Computed example of a mutant assay.
Amino acid sequence: MTEIGVGLIGYGLAGRAFHAPFVKVTPGLELRAVVSRDSAKVHAGLPDMTVCPDVPALLARDDIGLVIVASPDDLHAEHALGALAAGKHVLVDKPFATSLADARRIAAAGAAAGRLVAIFQNRRWDADFLTLRRLVADGRLGDVVQFESHFDRWRPQPAAVWKEARTGGAWLDLGPHLVDQALQLFGLPIAVSADIATLREGAPSADYFHVTLKYPDRRAILHSSKLVADHGLRFAVHGTRGSWIKHGFDPQEAAALQGQVPGSTGWGIDPSPGRFTGADGVRAEVAGVPGDYRRFWNALAAALRGEGPNPVPPSEAIAVMRVLDAALRSADAGRDVLVAE
């Protein structure tokens, strides 16, 4: 198998935990260079890696076919468009961009260049979400009428990092994950109602959101706060045949941060099974489907070889951006916003 050379822009949390380790274990991909201002940090995890001083130096390399954009959010469009202009395929970390207009520009540039543009929505392959998809597909829940997706944390003191001050705050940080999962289950909503706020003293951007996606026959509630001491609730899903409640988070992020090799023993096994309560009141634990972010990477490598579909194409990411944008406008206006507006 001919290996596809990969260049990584950025070696923060995303580059270090979610990209470099997975490229390393994906057949057909080879990480060949990283753009970073801190070569010592890169070499601490990747001792022999070439570190480029800037993005143009990376894009000038003929041995790079795929560029991963894991830079700060407000640079996503600039770096993705630059990589496409240089003839590279592109993988953009979430959010796709900081505006719907920029997301559409990137998608159009990829189509014009004949290059693959994929968006990193790894949480489609979370253990809990895969389990929920199975429950929905099997009909065990019946028709879902209320879907709650929580991503709460206990971080009462804002940290002095760019992510705390990012454009859109927590909504453009965690919102892309929660919106993408909801759209995978239910498609685009008709309207969005959003409350996005800054609740922590001294926080430089929004650290709280409560967003309702409105469908004709259901409501999908997406919630996050950084002032939740009891932050274990992940999903509460209610249907005409029963409810499924899930506490605890998919273990892959923690494992990656601890330096575990993706796919090692126990990888993706969720230690906290969800609980199903049927319409008859009987409760039972639900065995979880193992999570595995490698499925995204293997699908991406296959797509680059022309052997399969893009695992997360721009059209799906633009749908996410439409909801993100509608929510921001809803929060500003204090009213429901139609997604088609």
Rank of each mutant, 00 (worst) to 15 (best):
G142N: 00
D143L: 04
A159S: 12
V144S: 05
H177D: 11
L141S: 00
R166N: 11
P156Y: 05
W171M: 14
P158R: 03
L178M: 15
W154Q: 02
R155W: 08
A165R: 12
H177N: 10
L172S: 15
W171Y: 11
L141H: 01
W171N: 10
R153Y: 14
W171E: 13
R153D: 09
L183R: 15
D173Q: 13
K163S: 15
W162P: 15
E148T: 08
Q181I: 07
A170V: 14
G168R: 12
G168E: 08
G168A: 10
V145S: 08
L141R: 02
A165Q: 12
E164P: 04
L172M: 14
A182Y: 10
W162E: 09
Q146M: 13
P156D: 06
G168W: 06
D143H: 11
F151H: 11
L183N: 13
G139R: 04
Q181Y: 06
E164Q: 08
Q181M: 15
A159C: 03
V144L: 06
D138R: 01
G142V: 02
F147R: 03
H150F: 07
L178R: 10
E148K: 06
D143Y: 03
H177M: 07
V136K: 14
W171C: 11
P156S: 03
V136L: 08
F147I: 07
P158H: 04
A159L: 14
G139Y: 03
A165P: 08
V145D: 05
D180I: 07
Q146G: 05
P176H: 09
G168Q: 08
Q181D: 10
H150C: 02
L135M: 07
L174N: 15
L141E: 02
R155G: 01
A165Y: 10
P158I: 04
P156N: 04
R140L: 05
D138L: 00
S149I: 04
V145T: 13
H177Y: 07
V161R: 08
L178H: 10
R140Y: 01
Q146I: 09
V136E: 12
Q146T: 13
R166W: 05
R140E: 08
D138A: 06
K163L: 14
F147K: 04
E148A: 12
P156I: 05
A137V: 09
W154M: 01
G142C: 00
R153M: 04
W154V: 00
A160L: 07
E148I: 04
E164K: 01
K163Q: 15
Q146P: 01
R166Y: 05
R166E: 11
G142W: 02
T167H: 13
A137M: 09
R155P: 00
L141Y: 02
W162A: 10
H177G: 03
S149M: 10
V179K: 14
P156T: 06
K163P: 02
V161G: 02
